[in-house]
Structure formats: C-alpha cells, structure tokens
Write a protein that binds this DNA or RNA. Structure first.
Lengths: 261, 261
DNA sequence: CGGAAATTTGAGATCACTCAATTGCGGTGG
DNA sequence: CCACCGCAATTGAGTGATCTCAAATTTCCG
C-alpha cells in the first residue's frame, strides 16, 4: 500500500482552451459537439448565475479538502482531479476533471466529510455563488435536471474507478486509466495528432489506481515495451487502442452530448 | 483477486418496515427524523408521480445490469445493493441501499454502460414512471434540487468506498464496512437492541471490499476474536465502536436530514 | 553546473490470493 | 429419526502479486 501524498508542483502545460469569453452565449466550450447547446433562457440563467472567471495554476487547490467553499465552478479549460486523504496521508484520487465538469456540487449537501479538488494544469474556471444555487434552480428547472444529470454522470465515473480499484489487477488498471483519460480528453477536443496533453506524474496515476508508485512504474513500463502507448514530454499517445481496451475490459461507447452549466 | 459472482439465494429475513401506505402524506418512512418532512406541494407532486409499490424477494433483480428500466424506485423497506460485473464475472458491489435511497437515477443519463441493483432482503419499493421525471421536475423545481442532493449524497458514498478499495488494507476495509452499514441502518431506525439485520454473506462483503472470499473470512475472524463485533443469525452487533472506527479511520459525523422522494 | 523532483531498477518482505479440503447447518427424502 | 445434499463458513498450505526499502539514473530548472 502506498498512496502517501507527495506534494507536486507540476509545470503549467500548454492549454487548449483560452480564457472564457465574457458571455455564456459565446462560450467556446459549448460550441463543442460534446455539449448540449441549451436554450436561450438557460443560457441567460447561467450567464446571470455566473459570477466571473478564475485562473489557477497547476498544483493549486481549487477546493480545499477540509472546509467548505462558498463557490461552485465549471472547469472551462485544463485538467484537475478530485481526491480524498486518509488521516495518515494515504491519498486516493477519486476522478479526473476535464472542461465541462461541474465542481463543488457534493459540498452543497456535505455533512462535514468532503474531498479536495486540485488543478493539474493551469485551469480556467467559471465561478458561481453557491448561495444562489437554489434560487437559480427554482427559476429555471431545466438547470436542476441538468445538474442532476451531471451529478449522475460523475457518479458513474466513480463507479468505474471503484470497479478498477476493487477488481482489476495492475496491468488492467493502468490500461483502463490510459484509455479512459485519452477518450475523455479526445471527446472535448483536446486530442491533437493522436496525442493528448497528459500532466499527471506516476504518483497521480498510482493514487488514482490504488497501486504503489513503484508498481505503477513497472506496469507502465510493461505496457510501453509492448508498444501499446507512449508517454513522454507530457503527452500521451495511444498506440494500440484495441489491445488496451481489451486488457482493461473497458470499451468505448457512444456518448450523448451532456449539459454544460 | 476473487469477486467471481456466485449466485446467492438468501433467505427472506424479518422486515422492519411493512408495506408502504397508500398515500405519501402518511408515508411511514418520512416520519423518521432522518428525512426532511417536505411541503404539502412536494408531497402532492410525489404522490402524483408515484405509480404504485412493488415487493421483490431477497435475491431478486430490481434493475438488470444490462438494459434500461423504464421505472425509477425509492426503496421503502429492506436492503439492496448496486453492483457491476466485469466480462469475466468478477463482481464489484458499488454501494448498499437502505430505505429512502433512490434507485435508477443514473440510468436516466446512461450511455449504455450501467449497473445492476439486487435485493438483499425482501424489499418494498415505491415505483415511478421514468418518462414523467422531467415533467415532474419542471412543475416542482424543489424535487430537482432534492434529486440532485440524493445523487450527490450517493456519489459521496461511492467516493468513500473507492478510498476503501484503493487505500485501506483488509482489516481496515472490514472495520470500515461494518461501521458504515451499522450507522446507516441505525440512522433509518433499523437498529434494535444494539443490533441490525444483516442479510449479507461473506461473498457480498468480499465483493464490496475488493477482497477474496477467503481473506474476508479470515479478517472477519480476527475482528470477531478481538471482540469488536458479532455477526450471527443474520444480525450484526457492534461491540466496540471506537475500536472499529479507529481501525477503519472512519468516524461518525452529524448528519442532516435528507430529502425523500 | 548544481540541485530537486521524477523515473527507474533491484531485492527482499508481505499481504492477499488460489487451491483444496473440512466443518456446520438447514432442508429433504426415505 | 437419520442419512444425505447443498451451501456458506472455515481452515490450512503454498503461491504470487504487490509493497516497501533503498539506491541509481534521468529530467527539468535555475
């Protein structure tokens, strides 16, 4: 067992999305076909709800693990992740966050216990005041539906990670993680020439997979030597998707566009 | 690695809640202080949404793992659990369900992939037609807020299980599971004389904890011999809560009442 | 050219797994 | 009432995947 957190101050890496435009109607992210377009009324409600934007550096805390944040966020650009830490420092990464992911929802209903969110690259965030959430949902019920959708979608992501941590062996875990991250990034338009920006180090991967750093390293090497992927210079390329999918028992599925708030 | 599913037809055990009354206004479950009372308008909306009740036996499938259900449920009485199975049969229990838990939400937004729900005891369920969900949320935005709350709460439960599977060792896992299930059951009034109905066999526990059946058995024995709990005749008693909490690094927190739909 | 962090490698230790057999218990048929 | 069966719980023994420890190497930056 490993997972002892080692604080990492990784480098800001090239960003794919620039900063968020002033109005939600021109939201660069929403132009992506991975997201639902949303009615004018919804866009107005979201624009009105939005307090502003915020940029945080790689390695910065977006939501502290203990204590509540009075803000909610939508990740506009960059990579982040949610995590939890046991009292002796063992850390588990719960899931990774990509543009379009909503942040801070669970805290709204938290009873103390919670999780932290950390930026893995420089991140741009849309900021919303938590105390207006109910008011907004009340005036625009569709956003409540969308929010539930996003919450359910994130839960399914955690479900998958739980299966990985509970039932897959090391090589299956790594294969599954690589495919999962690649597919998600690709979906929001972050893939270029068959590769994606990959800002995570092996400690991150170990913490997400429930493996030790050393064993993660050795497993990664096996996959690399088999020619299934390449991971260098902060970029991940999938060289043999079929093999990785098969190893991880994790296959691509058609995905519907999801709401964006 | 174990987790190969072994089909279990466990015995129907004594139920705590009887069947659901005809109207939601007299809902026996809502009388419990663990749940918010809800306004008259909400209760009317829920009563109108509800299609009827359904009773399923222990071991029956409530939601099939593959394929969509056209119904949503609230568990009214009994124990159930959500699970996922890998293609070679390894099974992971994602979380356990108790009265008040909403079932089937994720499927609403599923893209194929999904999970199954199985009754562990005889279960009474309130049944809702999935295709009216949006209409109901539209007319009663508060229910959208509540549904998001329930989804976020369930996600936090899965988060905890993920930490357990990823970062705790065997004895910590078992200690944590026993305390978790006891506390949850106690909260909805299922504790009697310091014990709760415990319909799960060791295979269930192993599948929830990411351990093999044999190792789960041996770990359980260690805890029993330490005098921390007793588990016989389908009943779980916590004999040394402080020790179990400390072992599992899992402590009780004050919990707010949660919505009931 | 340092120096810190990340990656890599080797080696031995362990926890958890698999295999296999036994025990205990409730139900069933004779 | 007892032999028998099926299933869950136990136990023992050996194996193996993963962990821990420790050190070398590489990469990245100032």
């Amino acid at each position: 067992m490993d997972g002892y957190s080692r604080r990492v101050k990784s480098e800001p890496l090239a960003l794919l999305g620039a900063s968020c435009p002033t109005g939600c109607k021109n939201c660069g992210l929403r132009a992506n076909s991975a997201f639902l377009s949303g009615s004018a009324a919804e866009l107005d409600a979201i624009a009105d709800f939005r307090q502003g934007t915020r940029v945080v550096e790689a390695g910065a805390t977006i939501v502290p693990e203990h204590g509540t944040s009075s803000r909610l966020f939508t990740l506009y650009s960059g990579w982040a992740f949610r995590y939890k830490t046991l009292s002796d420092g063992r850390r588990q990464i719960l899931n990774f966050l990509l543009p379009g992911d909503f942040i801070g929802l669970q805290d709204e209903f938290a009873d103390g216990q919670t999780h932290g969110v950390e930026a893995a690259t420089t991140c741009t965030l849309c900021v919303f005041p938590r105390d207006r959430l109910w008011q907004v949902l009340h005036s625009q019920p569709k956003l409540g539906y969308d929010l539930t959708w996003l919450a359910a979608r994130e839960e399914k992501m955690v479900d998958d990670n739980l299966v990985t941590n509970g039932r897959r062996n090391a090589i299956e875990r790594v294969a599954m993680l690589l495919m999962h991250l690649y597919r998600r990034a690709e979906r929001v338009g972050m893939a270029h020439k068959g590769g994606i920006e990959f800002p995570f180090n092996q400690q991150h991967m170990a913490d997400a997979l429930g493996l030790s750093l050393v064993h993660t390293n050795k497993t990664l090497r096996r996959l690399r030597q088999l020619g299934l992927h390449s991971l260098e210079g902060g970029a991940l390329c999938i060289l043999n998707a079929a093999a990785l999918e098969s190893l991880g028992d994790y296959f691509e599925r058609p995905l519907r566009p999801v709401p964006l708030i």
